[in-house]
Design a protein around this nucleic acid. Structure first.
Length: 154
DNA sequence: GCCAACGTTGGC
DNA sequence: GCCAACGTTGGC
C-alpha cells in the first residue's frame, strides 16, 4: 500500500465536506506531476488530507483512494474554473481518483508542528518551494503524522 | 499583501 | 527548442 498527501483549501472543500459526502472525485487538478501521482495510486492507498491556504495549514484527517481512473468531469464544463478547451470526451486530458472519508484526526497536525519534528525532516511537503498538490509520503512519515494527530502534543 | 518558487505560454 | 514574461501556489 502506498501513502499520499493531498492538499485542499478548506474554504473550498475541507475534511468536514468530505465527511458529509463520504466520497469525492478529486477533480480540478491541472498539474501533470499531480496527475501522474494520481495515476500511480491504487484502491486502498492511504491519504493524508491536508488543509492549505488556511491559518494554520496542516493535516486535518485521513482518507483512502476508493476508485482510480476517474474522468475529471470539470474539464468539459465551460462554466467550471477547471474547464479545458483542449479536452474532448473522446480524448480527455484530465483524470483523477475518488477519495473516501476515513476519519478526522482528534488533533489537527499543524504544518509548524511537522517542521519541528526531526523524523519528518525529509518530507516532501516541507521542502522549499514545494507546492505540488498531490504528493507521495513514506509509510514512516504517514505513521508519524497519524500518531501526532491522535495524541495531544501542545 | 508580499514574494519565492516554479509551471505554462508564446514569440522567435 | 529556447527562454522571457506571465500566472499561480501557498506559506508567512
Amino acid at each position: 500500500m502506498q501513502h499520499w498527501l493531498m492538499k485542499t483549501e478548506p474554504e473550498q472543500f475541507g475534511i468536514t465536506d468530505l465527511e458529509r459526502v463520504k466520497v469525492e472525485p478529486w477533480s480540478g487538478v491541472r498539474n501533470y506531476m499531480a496527475r501522474a501521482n494520481m495515476r500511480a495510486m491504487q484502491v486502498g492507498d492511504a491519504v493524508l488530507f491536508y488543509h492549505s491556504s488556511t491559518q494554520p495549514p496542516g493535516v486535518a484527517g485521513l482518507a483512502t483512494v476508493s476508485r482510480t481512473g476517474v474522468v475529471d468531469e470539470t474539464q468539459f464544463d465551460p462554466d467550471s474554473p477547471y474547464f479545458d478547451p483542449k479536452a474532448t470526451r473522446d480524448k480527455p486530458r484530465w483524470d483523477c481518483v475518488d477519495v473516501r472519508y476515513v476519519e478526522t484526526l482528534p488533533h489537527y497536525v499543524e504544518l509548524a508542528q511537522m517542521r519541528e519534528d526531526p523524523s519528518l525532516k525529509k518530507m516532501m511537503l516541507l521542502k522549499r518551494g514545494m507546492r505540488l498538490s498531490v504528493q507521495p509520503v513514506t509509510a514512516a512519515e504517514y505513521k508519524r503524522i497519524v500518531a501526532m494527530g491522535r495524541k495531544k502534543s501542545r
